[in-house]
Design a protein around this nucleic acid. Structure first.
Length: 920
RNA sequence: GGGUGGUUAGCUCAGAUGGUUAGAGCACCUGCUUUACACGCAGGGGGUCGCAGGUUCGAGUCCUGCACCGCCCACCA
């Protein structure tokens, strides 16, 4: 093994090998429930960012874990055509070239987008591969592929035929920059500082009296068709039902009473512009007011706006205000902060206006057969579980207030709406296959609807459209419904909810069992990462610098599901250091194995059918039956961590699993077990620690593989070459070890918990720590050997067995062991040693440090320790003697406390005795 | 306005079903060319778990209220 681990080179080589061996490809077969994740399809022109890296790290870990447990897994990657986003990228290119999409026309434009997609569309998945993800690339799907496109059209036609898709004139949000309608979700509301303009509208029959309205958008007054006040507002008694004259326009409009009006706001009078405000639209409908569009789809005033026709909307605002002022009807202008909708894609202020659009009838969650109702029940009835659970409420609340979904977009890039209008009879032909004639009058004069569908309409079908639906395919049969949908909580409504709605509508089944939501990546100060802020980090740079495994560790360790993550470079350093640690520990273990090359013939002692293996290593793959206390201890610890990690993975607590594993590998295995093993190896102690050393390392690698796939594979392959080429399965027969760690079984706990070994080794560790601590505090150089006397006090066997370890790790020489208790004291053995006395109940360790510490100082230290002990003892005594506690606490808790009490009493007594001996 | 999350060591965060003396990484201090690793080893300091009540033998964990910070939703003209 090379001395240093070169992550980047190793990772590239290993990934290519995995691809060559075709390990990621899933084969449908019956018999076993598969584990399926459909990857959230990134935008085709998008670039890989840390959010993707997090998402893929989590999904890959889930998939690799299941694959190793022997479950058939499918992780299906894909790409989204991303209507507005992609169209805008290409439009910008055209602008740079001095032309526009309108100049070159629809056909040429779409061709141009395809060219762009073909050139740059694969980049994000090329980048993804660098992250080591084990997705089934052969099944990759693009939303505009024939299959998914067919699913889109099938869904549209079917929903239309069920009456769940309809075309209607409604007030919708329009982005004048993108030149398309937006759904409610695609509008971001931000508070902005604006003005509230108070305008006087004179009464028609009493021009000296006015109704003053307040508005933030005075230009819309050109389209006013009424004024509304609250029905009970006394200020407007006698005015309701009369008419006012709209300034500038001179139009006579009514004053109506409407419950929706808040008398507290402004003057209590609302100017009603039904075409340009959702509230006004509803008021207008209730009172049958006209709804003229005064602002056009291009953002300029329309002909209806009279002399302002053609003026851009914000310019119109300035000029209207000026004119109102000069007419003397501008009462006052106040500063006013209010929320304004912006286009999610380009941040342009959206314009609500009335237009003809296609909608999906979502219905209400209270109607059992509506789309909303079914999507609602899928979650309330537990068919779909959301992790973390708190997002369940968020999801349900959203459905409770849902409105119909505007799905038509005035774009050219996307799935064209499969509807044809007849020029002669006006009939709408909605069809799977492109028709030549009107289905009603057979006229050939038909035109297809120019609009395309909302991108989320096709992504909403993703779990079934990628598996071949509506075809009756093996993949669909076997892999649908999928298992886990993993994504960021920010697209819960956009995507997750839509998949649930459309999945159930199309297939009758919820598209997945579990929704696992991860949090957002933020920068070190908690700000959202974005290009405009300039606080982004390129995952590929990080991977080159620290390695993929380190990046994955940094993204997923110690985080809880659904929680945002403040990402800083020192997380990456920690990941890199961890990888380095594992590399070096493995290098040590493997170098030791190299010394005991397998020798033909002598393996039969351990297993009759293992002819080429070194007897001590035969068991390394599957199980060892440790005899030595240290081996029993590390195996016991291993089985505990194995159980914990499995449990955490089952419950999606990936951060927990990583933390637990990290702690075991670093502390138990590296800091203690390897150090203890070194001593046994050096001294030729029996039995050799090598089988256990190898066994635990091999299990560690497998346990860690889902999280850090590359370094574990690299080491595992080397380790494998040092271990026998046959593996004894738990059933006793020989099997070939798998080709790759990713095909090896995920470890399960063998239940080799050994409380005695754990206790005894813990005692040894405490004794070693106590001595080290003393050395550090008294500044005794590491090189200086110290003599010590240990009173074993009932632990003589363990202490004698571990004497070498204690000697080496605490640099004691010689180490004298006495039985302790009465025998010791009476024989005077201990009395000869004056210095520091350490109580590690039940052990007493005496260090002869006369001249280094004086008796006063030592007495002082011991009294402080005793005081601390007394304090704890008092608390525990109180607790244990409380009848309520004994009665109500769990038995194991009571047992623990009693053991603790006994230990504290032992310690207290020993401290007393030592102080007595000291004569203080 | 309605939801919802957070408030734990200097910083970033973990802390299933209430139960040892509250943990990790980083930072900090002191030693260390210990033959796997200085991307390391050993030792150490540092927290009234936001505030106030309550339930309980026992509360970081459960309940109520409050205070900040954040996020989501909503038709604040």
């Amino acid at each position: 093994m090379p001395r240093a681990y070169n992550a980047a080179d190793v990772e590239r080589r290993i990934y290519q090998n995995w691809l060559d061996k075709d390990y990621f490809h899933a084969v449908p077969h019956t018999g076993q429930q598969p584990y399926v994740i459909i990857m959230p399809p990134p935008n085709v022109t998008g670039e890989l960012h840390l959010g993707h890296a997090l998402e893929k790290a989590l999904e890959d870990a889930l998939i690799r874990y299941r694959r190793m447990t022997g479950v058939p897994t499918l992780w299906l990657p894909g790409t989204d055509h991303a209507g507005i986003a992609t169209q805008w990228v290409v439009e910008r290119q055209l602008i740079d070239e001095g032309t526009s999409r309108h100049d070159i026309g629809r056909e040429a434009f779409v061709r141009r987008v395809w060219e762009h997609v073909e050139k740059s569309g694969g980049i994000i998945h090329e980048q993804s591969r660098r992250l080591g993800i084990s997705a089934d690339w052969e099944r990759h799907k693009f939303t505009l592929d024939d299959g998914p496109s067919n699913a889109v059209r099938t869904t549209f036609v079917s929903l239309y035929e069920k009456g769940l898709i309809y075309r209607h004139e409604r007030i919708i949000n329009r982005c004048v920059r993108c030149a398309t309608a937006l759904s409610d979700l695609e509008v971001d509301y931000d508070d902005v500082d604006g003005q509230l303009y108070h305008i006087r509208y004179p009464l028609e029959d009493e021009p000296d009296r006015c109704v003053t309205v307040a508005t933030t958008r005075p230009e819309t007054m050109l389209g006013d068709t009424g004024v509304a006040v609250h029905p009970d507002d006394p200020r407007y008694d006698g005015i309701r039902g009369r008419n006012v004259v709209l300034p500038i326009m001179g139009r006579v409009i009514p004053v109506v009473g409407d419950e929706a009006i808040d008398p507290e706001f402004g003057t209590g009078a609302l100017k009603v512009t039904p075409a340009h405000d959702p509230v006004d639209f509803e008021v207008g409908q209730r009172h049958r007011l006209d709804a003229p569009n005064v602002i056009g789809e291009d953002g300029a005033m329309t002909r209806v706006a009279g002399k302002y026709a053609g003026v851009e909307r914000f310019e119109a605002r300035r000029r209207v205000v000026e004119e109102l002022d000069s007419l003397g009807v501008l009462d006052k202008v106040e500063a006013h902060r209010h929320s304004v909708g912006h286009c999610q894609r380009c941040a342009t202020v959206v314009e609500p206006l009335i237009s003809m659009q296609w909608f999906v009838n979502i219905g209400s969650h209270e109607q059992p057969d509506s789309i909303a109702g079914k999507a609602y029940r899928a979650v309330t009835e537990g068919d779909i579980r959301i992790v973390p659970e708190r997002f369940t409420r968020v999801y349900l609340n959203w459905l409770e207030n849902i409105r119909d979904w505007c799905i038509s977009r005035q774009l050219w890039w996307g799935h064209r709406i499969p509807v044809w209008y007849c020029d002669s009879c006006g009939h709408m032909t909605v069809a799977m296959a492109d028709p030549d004639t009107c289905e009603a009058c057979r006229s050939t004069g038909i035109r297809q609807d120019p609009d395309v569908l909302d991108t989320w309409f096709s992504s909403g079908l993703w779990p079934h459209s990628t598996l071949g639906w509506p075809g009756d395919t093996d993949d669909f049969d076997y892999f649908y419904p999928t298992t886990v949908l993993e994504t960021g909580y920010d697209i819960l409504f956009f995507w997750v909810a839509r998949m649930i709605m459309l999945g159930i509508e199309n297939t009758g089944k919820p598209p997945f069992n579990t929704v696992y939501l991860h949090g957002l990546i933020r920068d070190g100060s908690g700000a959202k990462m974005s290009k405009t802020r300039g606080n982004t980090m390129d995952p590929l740079d990080l991977v080159e610098k620290y390695g993929t495994d380190a990046l994955r560790f940094a993204l997923t360790t110690g985080t809880a599901p659904g929680n945002d993550l403040r990402f800083t470079e020192n997380r990456l350093e920690a990941g890199r250091n961890y990888a380095n640690k594992i590399w070096n520990a493995s290098r040590f273990v493997i170098s030791q194995l190299e010394g005991v090359q397998s020798s033909p013939g002598n393996a039969s002692a351990t297993h009759p059918d293992a002819p080429t293996a070194h007897p001590e290593l035969v068991e390394g793959w599957s199980d060892v039956t440790p005899e030595h206390r240290e081996d029993r201890w590390i195996i016991s610890r291993l089985d505990r961590v194995t159980a914990d990690v499995n449990r955490s993975l089952e419950s999606f607590e990936l951060g927990d699993a990583q933390q637990r594993l990290h702690e075991f590998i670093w502390n138990d295995y590296c800091d203690w077990y390897i150090e203890m093993a070194k001593i046994r190896l050096r001294n030729g102690g029996e039995p050799s620690p090598l089988p256990t050393l190898a066994h635990v390392l091999e299990r560690i690698l497998r346990l860690l593989h889902p999280f850090m796939p590359f370094i574990t594979e690299e080491i595992w392959q080397t380790l494998k070459s040092e271990l026998p080429q046959e593996n004894i399965s738990s059933h006793g027969e020989l099997v070939e070890p798998p080709e790759s760690i990713m095909l090896a079984p995920y470890p399960v706990s063998n239940g080799r918990i050994d409380p005695a070994a754990e206790e005894e080794i813990a005692l040894v560790q405490q004794a070693v720590r106590a001595v080290r601590n003393t050395r550090a505090q008294l500044r005794i150089p590491a090189a200086q050997r110290l003599e010590a006397l240990v009173e074993a006090n009932g632990q003589r066997a363990a202490i004698e067995d571990e004497a070498d370890v204690i000697r080496a790790l605490s640099r004691i020489e010689p180490l004298n062991i006495v039985s302790g208790d009465d025998a010791t004291r009476h024989s005077g053995e201990s009395g000869s040693l004056r210095g520091v006395t350490l109580v590690v109940s039940p052990l007493v360790v005496r260090l002869p440090l006369e001249g280094v510490v004086d008796l006063d100082a030592e007495g002082e230290r011991l009294r402080a320790e005793l005081a601390d002990c007394d304090k704890n003892l008092e608390r525990v005594e109180k607790l244990v003697s409380n009848p309520n506690f004994r009665e109500k606490a769990r038995p194991d808790v009571v047992e623990n406390e009693e053991a603790r009490l006994a230990e504290l009493r032992d310690r207290q007594q020993r401290l007393h005795e030592i102080l007595q001996q000291l004569g203080r």
